[in-house]
Computed example of a mutant assay.
Amino acid sequence: MSKRKKIFLSIASVLVVILSVLCMYAYNVYNSLQDTVSVMHQPIERDVPAKRVEKLSLEKKDPFSVLLLGVDKRENDKGRSDTMVVLTVNPNEDSIKMISIPRDTRVPIIGKDFEDKINHAYAFGGVPMSVATVEDFLDIPIDYYIEINMEGFQEIVDAVGGVKVKNQFAFNSGGFTFQEGQIELTGKEALAYSRMRYEDPRGDLGRQQRQRQIIEAVIRKGASLQSLWKYEDIFTALGNNVKTNLTFDEMVTFQSHYSSAVKQIDHYQVDGKGQRMDNIYYYVVSDEERARLQDIIKKHLGV
């Protein structure tokens, strides 16, 4: 056998081994994700029909919406959705829009005959009532929900290897000191960072901004190829702390058809004013502000 053939066969053998390892790795990732999604998957039956007129088609790359609920659950307490973020994903524009809804926002609670703080919808009727109430507030269909246990959110941050955010001013919270500027956060630090509001002159609005920073950082870090090597930790953290009506097939389709949307993430704040009614604090949003937000989000969804 010639020297050239020997070199060629040696290279070919190495390539076969590498490809075999990669195939086995991809197979393990695929199966682990499938197992994790089966644990996370929790469909919802809604009393109020969704506002989507035509059926959503992921294969056609239709824009879709997600309600992200960060829930603090306590012993003998169903909990409240202290974090409520609506994400709309449009692969045709390669963009995601993210709207934080203040937890004290006064709205009609769909399924009840009264107005109350929007985060109380979860306490009254869980995910279905939260979804229906947000759909009514923004006048859009909510296609999917993701419920995150906020106590366990730190596990997700640690699983992706921590996150980097740009802090606007120095402050102390949860036993940690956060300097102004670019900072790197562990899971515990990220939770303390996102929960602080009393030292922030913007109050809950400032807290919402920090929550959006953490969410965006996790999305970007989790979507990177670098995170594939940590898939076991990431999938375990998700399985322990997340519930969603997303199926495994839908998640696979997102990766293949919608991953480009991560390129641009736009943040929007719900403007309103604090007001006391019967000695209870509410965040009151005007009809004009609701119309402004609805216009932005409807255009992005194409509804």
Rank of each mutant, 00 (worst) to 15 (best):
N240G: 06
M196H: 10
L205N: 04
L228Y: 15
K263S: 15
G181R: 04
K263Q: 15
T186P: 02
M251C: 11
V242N: 10
E189G: 04
Q255C: 11
R212K: 10
L205C: 07
P201L: 08
E199T: 15
P201R: 09
F178W: 09
Y231S: 10
D249I: 13
N245T: 09
Q264V: 05
D266T: 05
T253F: 15
Q264C: 02
T247K: 15
G222T: 11
F178C: 11
G203E: 07
A192P: 10
L228H: 12
G206E: 02
K221F: 01
G239D: 04
F235D: 09
Q209L: 07
F254N: 13
H257L: 15
Q209R: 07
S194D: 00
R220W: 00
G206C: 03
A217R: 02
L205F: 06
E232N: 08
Q213S: 05
G203R: 11
Y193E: 03
Q213P: 10
N245Q: 07
E199N: 14
Y231H: 13
A192C: 08
Y258T: 14
Q211P: 03
A261I: 13
K243H: 13
K188M: 09
Y231A: 06
P201K: 09
G181H: 04
A261M: 13
S260Q: 13
Y193R: 01
L238S: 09
M251E: 07
S194Q: 01
R202N: 14
Q255T: 15
G203H: 05
L246A: 14
T177Y: 11
E199S: 15
E184F: 04
